[in-house]
């Protein structure tokens, strides 16, 4: 796959993950058992006109997300608040809370001004229209007489 560097299996990515984990273990965040730091899983696909990024963020409202495009990087920041109540018993706590961030390097140039993000039933869909230079252009082949 050409876009191998985007995947979490890439050594550079794994190194970064490892460093993040080490640092967060030493400094704060590790003290709260329920708070998990990590990156949300994303699906990315492309059409002729756009790149699309989709992620599952159940329970979040649109204004609790921070999506930004700088140069050719898409950055997504999410914070799921811990709504722990006192005086109750938790039998199960599987739903992750805490801060999640993800930076994706985009494989093509996008038009940052026209990026749109839509939140629907806990699924965030981001459309990144490709810059005109990055779109495929069909070349008409003229048959010589």
């Amino acid at each position: 796959m050409v876009l191998g560097y985007l995947t979490p299996r890439h050594p550079a990515w794994q190194l970064r993950e490892e460093m993040d984990r080490l640092l967060s273990g030493f400094f704060g965040d590790g003290n709260q058992p329920a708070a998990r730091r990590g990156h949300p899983a994303v699906n990315v696909w492309e059409t002729n006109e756009s790149l699309w990024v989709e992620l599952e963020v159940p329970g979040l409202k649109g204004d609790e997300l921070d999506v930004s495009v700088v140069d050719n990087e898409l950055s997504i920041k999410i914070e799921r608040l811990d709504v722990h109540e006192d005086g109750v018993t938790y039998h199960r706590r599987e739903r992750a809370v805490g801060a999640f961030a993800r930076v994706l390097r985009l494989p093509v140039e996008v038009d940052a001004n026209r990026v749109t993000a839509e939140m629907k039933h806990g699924v965030l869909t981001i459309e990144l229209p490709k810059a005109p230079s990055a779109r495929p252009r069909k070349i008409q082949v003229i048959a010589a007489e």
């Binding site: 599952e56 005086g87 199960r92 739903r95 992750a96 039933h121 806990g122």
Partner: peptide
Amino acid sequence: PNVDIIEKSDELLVVADVPGAT
């Protein structure tokens, strides 16, 4: 789905993440 199960004095609360479902 990932769930939280919370017991209060008068009820059990089951909270499940089901993104995409209505």
